[in-house]
């Protein structure tokens, strides 16, 4: 009796000991900074501590609410997410169905499709910025030489085109990630379901909408969550592709927050921006976590 008690206690103690280092690192790097940002956003201080912290209440938040550039950044972030995620999903499902077929060279094809995901987004953005270039870029060369355009297209400098150009890069990079997750779901669907469907004389399309899609709900939800959280946080893509331009047409919330802190050097106002951004994203993530828990 005494022995088992000891074992249980020892197990619990070991468990706590094993978990503690991870909890400490996460607390230091992820949780404490958020709390500190909240404190900073209610005050006036300097980065190096030369100016002591002074409480100013909601002043920075009031400035923020009246700041057109903040609302623009919020709109840009949501537009970017709303445009890129459905495209990525559609292409992801298409690619997953393709990779689920058996054909020669499948391994190589899957690898080629995976490459864009593995590259740093910041460098992807540079590669595309070079192809979009209105003076020397590949796209303008093809468009002009084939007669599709009669003068150079300013993909990144035109306010109406820049967002679309940015969405294309995001879709190019991450559709494969969507595809991988959906493919894993696809491969877990029992084969006999399709055979039964074929017996009933289902067409390929009916098979897809009545058997495949309903069974893919879980993986699709997961892929949507992961990708939309990423899209809402997007930073290095506009940073390197357009620097938020032209006229802030692609300035995401993350990029605006970064500029407030490190370009305008308005540390406390920047903290208010990141707190609001955090609240927006955290609210979304909570919705998602609950959606996931209720999935099964």
């Amino acid at each position: 009796m005494n022995r088992t008690m000891n074992l249980e206690q020892r197990t619990a103690l070991t468990g706590i000991g094993f978990v503690t280092p991870t909890v400490i690192v996460i607390a230091l790097i992820l949780i404490y900074p958020i709390i500190q940002s909240v404190v900073l956003s209610f005050g006036q201080s300097s980065i190096d501590g030369s100016e002591p912290y002074r409480f100013v209440g909601l002043r920075h938040y009031a400035t923020l609410m009246g700041d057109g550039r903040f609302w623009n950044a919020l709109a840009v972030t949501f537009t970017f997410t709303a445009l890129s995620i459905p495209l990525e999903l559609a292409l992801g499902i298409g690619l997953a169905l393709l990779m689920n077929e058996s054909f020669r060279g499948k391994g190589l094809a899957r690898l080629a499709v995976l490459f864009p995901w593995a590259l740093p987004t910041a460098l992807n953005a540079l590669i595309w910025r070079w192809m979009y270039n209105s003076d020397y870029g590949l796209f303008n060369a093809v468009a002009l030489q084939s007669g599709l355009a009669d003068r150079p297209i300013n993909f990144l400098g035109d306010t109406s085109l820049a967002m679309a150009s940015m969405v294309v890069v995001a879709v190019w990079k991450t559709s494969s990630f969507m595809a991988l997750i959906i493919l894993a779901g696809l491969q877990s669907i029992p084969r006999d379901l399709f055979e039964a469907g074929r017996m009933d004389g289902m067409t390929k399309w009916q098979e897809f909408t009545q058997i495949t899609l309903p069974l893919l709900k879980g993986p699709i939800l997961v892929a949507l969550i992961i990708r939309s959280m990423d899209a809402l946080r997007t930073f290095e893509l506009p940073f390197n592709l357009t620097d938020g331009g032209p006229v802030n047409a692609t300035e995401s919330l993350s990029l605006y927050a970064y500029k407030a802190i490190f370009d305008f050097l308005d540390f406390n106002f920047g903290a208010a921006v990141v707190v609001v951004q955090f609240l927006v994203i955290f609210a979304m993530s909570l919705i998602y976590v609950f959606a996931l828990r209720n999935k099964d």
């Binding site: 500190q36 946080r233 802190i261 903290a271």
Partner: peptide, 26 residues
């Protein structure tokens, strides 16, 4: 704890910057 860990993984990295920069500096 697992759910909490999942939730904090969704924090936007830019939200960490003012504090991390200051603490790392200090």
């Amino acid at each position: 704890l697992m759910v909490a860990i999942l939730a904090v993984s969704m924090f936007p990295p830019v939200s960490l910057l003012p504090s991390l920069f200051q603490n790392f500096l200090n």
